[in-house]
């Protein structure tokens, strides 16, 4: 990638790059395929680092991964409900992040789980927290000469997590809003929580104020409603063909409440 700079593009599953090229939205001189880097397809638990997801793992690889099914079933569910089966067989986790579309489905849950990504170039490698990775629609901190090699979910105290993509159809529709939560429960007290929202701002965002509202107070339906309201207030969605700003904010309220309830009572689902 050093050699081509901005003239080159990485090709992973191609589900986005090739659609964009066909629509004339992208015209790289050189496509560099990663397909021969088989080691970047692995998903495994590393005792020192946590759960490692190779950038080239496809959405169906995530959905079918025994490690994820045991540790973060929520991530398998998220991957399983993305796109359609054909796209899930070719589209990759790394591509979904680097693409940096505000409505993408993997970023919110991975942010809620505290994931980081590894960026590698000939100059070396660096680790970036996923929540600091996105800078705007289709923009990230990744430099042209860097390749995203893996996603790491560090071991944590979360007892539950879940994601809901609220779309207009069950399949093949982009998220109107996406709500991910991860909670660390101790009895009926929530000791730690991360709420990440997709499709409601130029990048996925965390609802920091809402998180504080929930922490260390006995969980009741009223409290969850209050957290939902707070999260809605923190979001800054646009109005477009998929929904108005007001509608999106109200859906954030509803799904933040519901997802928290689900993760609190059902674990990683």
């Amino acid at each position: 990638m050093d050699q081509f700079g901005a003239r080159g593009k990485v090709l992973a599953g191609g589900t986005d790059v090739l659609s964009m090229m066909k629509q004339g939205l992208l015209a790289p001189e050189v496509l560099v395929s990663l397909k021969n880097l088989a080691e970047l397809k692995q998903i495994y638990a590393d005792p020192a680092r946590g759960v490692v997801i190779g950038a080239l793992a496809t959405h169906n690889d995530l959905a079918d991964s025994p490690v994820l099914q045991e540790r973060y079933l929520s991530l398998c569910q998220t991957a399983h409900h993305m796109a359609n089966n054909q796209v899930r067989n070719t589209g990759t986790a790394g591509g979904n992040l680097v693409n940096a579309v505000p409505s993408a489905d993997l970023p919110p849950l991975l942010i809620a789980l505290g994931a980081a990504v590894t960026l590698v170039s000939t100059g070396g490698s660096r680790t970036v927290k996923l929540e600091e990775f996105f800078t705007g629609p289709r923009m990230t901190v990744k430099k042209d000469n860097e390749i995203l090699t893996e996603i790491v979910i560090p071991d944590n105290s979360f007892t539950g997590s879940t994601y809901h993509k609220f779309g207009l159809r069950r399949s093949g529709a982009l998220a109107v809003v996406g709500v991910a939560v991860a909670v660390a429960m101790e009895g009926d007290l929530c000791r730690d929580v991360r709420i990440a929202l997709g499709a409601v701002a130029p990048t996925p965002i965390r609802a920091f104020k809402a998180e504080e509202v929930l922490k260390n107070r006995p969980v009741t339906d009223q409290l969850l409603e209050e957290v939902g309201r707070c999260a809605a207030g923190e979001s800054n969605p646009i109005s477009d063909i998929r929904g108005s700003k007001e509608y999106r904010q109200d859906m954030i309220r509803v799904f933040t409440r519901r997802m928290l309830k689900k993760a609190i009572s059902e674990g990683h689902v």
Binding site: G14, T15, N85, V87, T90
Partner: peptide, 11 residues
């Protein structure tokens, strides 16, 4: 199953 319109022949 894959969409053969989104797979490069070289891939």
């Amino acid at each position: 199953p894959v969409n053969s319109c989104l797979v490069l022949a070289v891939e």
